[in-house]
Design a protein around this nucleic acid. Structure first.
Length: 806
RNA sequence: GCCGGUGUGGCGGAACGGUAGACGCGGUGGUCUCAAAAACCAUUGGGGGCAACCCCGUGUGGGUUCGAAUCCCACCGCCGGCACCA
């Protein structure tokens, strides 16, 4: 559907191609959008998520996001803010590298072309970026500081190498963070992810779990994103309980439960089948059998099978009753969550119930409220079969039982998070090398800060090799370096870091791009952080937006940034869909903005996209719909170029103008572009009427152009010039309004009988309720309908309604 | 299952608890034209009526209120997040 089948058309006498090209050039020459970073009176950091420069170029979703965010920035600039609106390139990462592999060209050579294309399209859209602060995450003067951040994390004990069961993508041949696995598949390529036990670099985001959760309460963010982060962090409250073990190498095991009140219903223990130290829980004579069983476990299935499990032959000792309970291993318990082991309470947990049934284990009711012979009862109730705790409610019992355990040193209350540490190692080429040197004597040593960046070596064959090592491992002369600490033989870390580490701090770099010696200049940072408003996609809810909050908090704790939260105000823009589905290459419903900009011009596309629906909701792209935007802008052109502009004083029209300014100002501030455009359309209709009636007021046209300027920057700039103004409309002052003039003078109020509208009353504002009631009563229609019926009650809301209850 | 969002004409969508359907697309009729396109004007939720007007209508069922798309309760559908998390 990219070919609209129509010839490029002109909007009346408006040649969008020539006009848009003229102003693109003029704005670049005059640096219209360059921000004053050092002496701003009212700094306004207008940030939008930077793209990775794909070869396909800007898509319609980008055009939508940038049109809205740019309109908002332009509005704030005209309001007198010093708007800083930078843009850059998330150029490192698997996505760019995979494309380079596909076309067989080195990413260092490919990337400049894709970047240039993106930049061309953004400029064409009329996005007013301050290009003097452009950045590129794959440039050494950027990733030098990404590496520096890694070193700071290491120094603070927040980066560590550890062995764990991790996600391995068999197609991209690298490990992935939990956040990059969507429903068991690689976020990038869609391949089913495998589990591998590997030693990898992790950033300890879990140390900040509580802070990241609490911080959400301070943020003005779209609900979806807050809720997604809250779910992802996944806090649960409960208790750690220690069971002594018999018949195996370990003396005891601690389990986490959110239901300590059900402790007396624990009839067995289960250790995760993937627990790294399963052997320690196993009776020596069972080890061989358990190892065999483990090796033959089926891969992860969609439908969990709670019957799979094996008796480890050891015994747990119940901390309250002293009863001996069997210990099992089963895949339904996760080795990586909590302590990797649970107490099973089949009477009151669905999964434990199913496992108990399958293995003929006892099911004991300890909470009243259900029938545990039929199914697990997971609600709360009153305790039974629970030694001296019988008769307590679940809530009371939780406290009493934990207190008892604590006295005996067998347990304590505890909080668990679902959030895992952030795995940042990637066995790939196109990223910043992790700045570490491994030394046999000193262990992993960070590269000294004055030796950063660790340059990514220029490797011709950058294909991932799939051995669990990055292609960098084969560059011997690069790998072998002396240990910075002892001078002995050392080997460089050969993995690169996750691209999300690059983007976790880019907003701090923009204001300081010209500083070589620091990642971000202190004065600049204190002036420009935190970001005033951040706009982007919600698909980054638990990726970029979470990582950036984490890194920013670490930098705050280290004294490098002035605020704990990087983005106090975030708005998620909606999705542009087409034919009811998300645009995607595989569906063949991708719409290229270039085609529409060719045919109708950038302003028309911007207005059309923003008019489609609420900005935070998005909308359905339909080819026919764009004609509304075409007609609207052509009417604007006609009105502003008419030779009948007058300077006549006109009280009614002046009031109308003030009311419009007030309404548009409110909507532009709240990103309600669709209703702002609707109001402007109505206004243009009225001005068209004025023109037919003899003349349009110059001031009305000027106001129209200014209010429309953020949305349609080229055509308004051209008309601004044609109506005799010098200087950019985008640097002009946003029209003000007098609230008393903006307020309506006359209102039409509804007259209701029993809540049903029966007539209307057109009156000046400010009438008293009794006057209104009197006027309403005297309306012929109302008299007729009221007839002889007595009025039981009259409700009068001035400027709204009169309602007679009979 | 839990969490968040959402449900309004043929379609996209408007609507501080106060005249539901702004604005736009599409449709219909008209003006202009030899004709068409463009442009402009009128009309366009459903039903009834010659008309003035009347009735019905915001996913479903209840409730609060003089008055509910809007608030409350219980459902249903759709979209998104989490999900063997103990």
């Amino acid at each position: 559907m990219q070919d609209t089948g129509e010839q490029p058309q002109r909007i009346g006498a408006y040649d969008h191609t020539a006009v848009e090209a003229k102003w693109r050039q003029r704005w670049a020459e005059e640096q219209t959008y360059k921000a004053d970073l050092d002496t701003p009176a009212r700094p306004y950091y207008n940030l939008m998520m930077f793209p990775y420069p794909s070869a396909e170029g800007l898509h319609t979703g980008h055009a939508f996001t940038f049109s809205g965010a740019d309109a908002h920035g332009r509005f704030r600039r005209m309001q007198g803010n010093d708007v800083f609106q930078p843009m850059g390139w998330d150029a490192f990462g698997i996505h760019s590298e995979n494309y380079a592999l596909k076309v067989g060209e080195h990413p260092t050579r490919l990337m400049p072309r894709t970047v240039a294309n993106f930049k061309r399209q953004m400029d064409r859209l009329g996005a007013g970026f301050d290009w003097s602060h452009e950045l590129n995450t794959s440039a050494p003067d950027y990733y030098r500081w990404t590496q520096w951040i890694f070193v700071q994390l290491m120094k603070r004990g927040l980066a560590e190498q550890k062995e764990a069961a991790v996600n391995w993508c068999p197609r991209d041949l690298t490990v992935l963070a939990d956040e990059q696995v969507i429903a068991g598949r690689c976020e990038r390529c869609g391949a089913v992810v495998e589990r591998r036990v590997l030693k990898q670099w992790f950033l300890k985001i879990t140390d900040y779990a509580q802070q990241l959760l609490d911080g959400l309460d301070t943020l003005d963010w779209s609900d979806v994103v807050v809720s997604a982060q809250r779910n992802w962090i996944g806090r649960s409250e409960g208790a750690m309980i220690r069971f002594d073990l018999e018949g195996c190498a370990r003396g005891d095991v601690t389990v986490f439960t959110t239901r300590p009140d059900t402790l007396c219903g624990a009839t067995f223990l289960v250790v995760g089948a993937d627990h790294p130290k399963l052997d320690e829980f196993t009776a020596p004579e069972r080890r061989e059998a358990v190892a065999r069983w483990r090796a033959e476990l089926p891969a992860d299935q969609d439908e969990p099978d709670f019957s799979i499990g094996i008796d480890l032959g050891s015994q747990g000792v119940h901390p309250l009753t002293g009863a001996r309970v069997p210990v099992f291993a089963a895949p339904y318990v996760l080795g990586g969550y909590g302590t990797g082991a649970i107490m099973a309470v089949p009477g009151h947990d669905e999964r434990d119930w199913q496992f108990a049934r399958a293995h003929s284990l006892p099911i004991v009711e300890v909470i009243t409220g259900g029938d545990v012979d039929d199914e697990a009862y997971t609600g709360s109730g009153v305790l039974v079969n629970s030694v001296e705790f019988d008769g307590l409610s679940s809530d009371e019992a939780k406290q009493h039982i934990v207190a008892r355990l604590q006295e005996q040193g067998r347990g304590e209350s505890a909080v668990q998070f679902r959030l895992r540490d952030w795995l940042i190692s990637r066995q790939r080429y196109w990223g910043p090398p992790i700045p570490v040197i491994h030394c046999a004597q000193c262990g992993p040593v960070p590269v000294p800060e004055d030796q950063l960046p660790v340059l990514l070596p220029d490797v011709e064959d950058f294909k991932p090799i799939g051995t669990g090592l990055s292609p960098l491992a084969s560059v011997e002369e690069w790998v072998n370096v002396p240990c910075p600490q002892c001078g002995g033989p050392g080997r460089r870390e050969t993995d690169v870091s996750d691209t999300f580490l690059d983007s976790a701090w880019y907003f701090l770099r923009y204001p300081s791009t010209e500083f070589d010696g620091v990642p971000f200049d202190r004065e600049r940072t204190w002036r420009w952080a935190p970001v005033t408003i951040y706009i982007g996609g919600k698909e980054h809810s638990v990726l970029h937006l979470l990582y950036a909050r984490f890194i920013n908090r670490v930098l705050y704790d280290a004294g490098f940034v002035p605020a704990q939260e990087p983005f106090p105000l975030f708005r998620a823009n909606g999705l542009i869909i087409k034919d009811g589905a998300k645009m995607s290459k595989s569906r063949g419903n991708v719409v290229s903005p270039d085609v529409y900009m060719d045919t109708y011009g950038a302003d028309t596309l911007r207005v059309y996209l923003l008019f489609l629906g609420p900005y935070e909701q998005g909308g359905d792209f339909r080819d026919e719909g764009i004609s509304g935007a075409v007609r609207f802008l052509s009417r604007v052109w006609r009105i502003a170029t008419a030779d009948t502009l007058t300077d006549a004083a006109d009280d009614r029209r002046e009031r109308r103008r003030h009311a419009l300014v007030k309404a548009i100002t409110e909507r532009m501030g709240g990103l309600r572009f669709n209703t702002a455009i609707a109001l402007l359309m109505t206004y243009v209709d009225e001005l068209t009427g004025d023109a037919a009636a003899g003349g349009v007021r110059r001031v009305d046209v000027e106001t129209l152009l200014q209010l429309l300027a953020p949305l349609a920057p080229h055509i308004t700039e051209e008309l601004w010039e044609r109506t005799g103004h010098t200087g950019s409309i985008h640097r002009s002052q946003w029209p003000g309004y007098d609230p008393s003039l903006a307020a309506a003078q006359e209102v039409t109020i509804a007259v209701q009988i029993n809540g049903k509208v029966r007539d209307t009353l057109h009156v000046p504002v400010g009438m008293s309720p009794s006057e209104l009631e009197g006027l309403a009563k005297r309306l012929p229609r109302i008299q007729e309908l009221l007839a002889e019926k007595p009025i039981r009650k009259a409700i009068v809301v001035p400027e709204r309604i009169v309602n007679f209850v009979v």
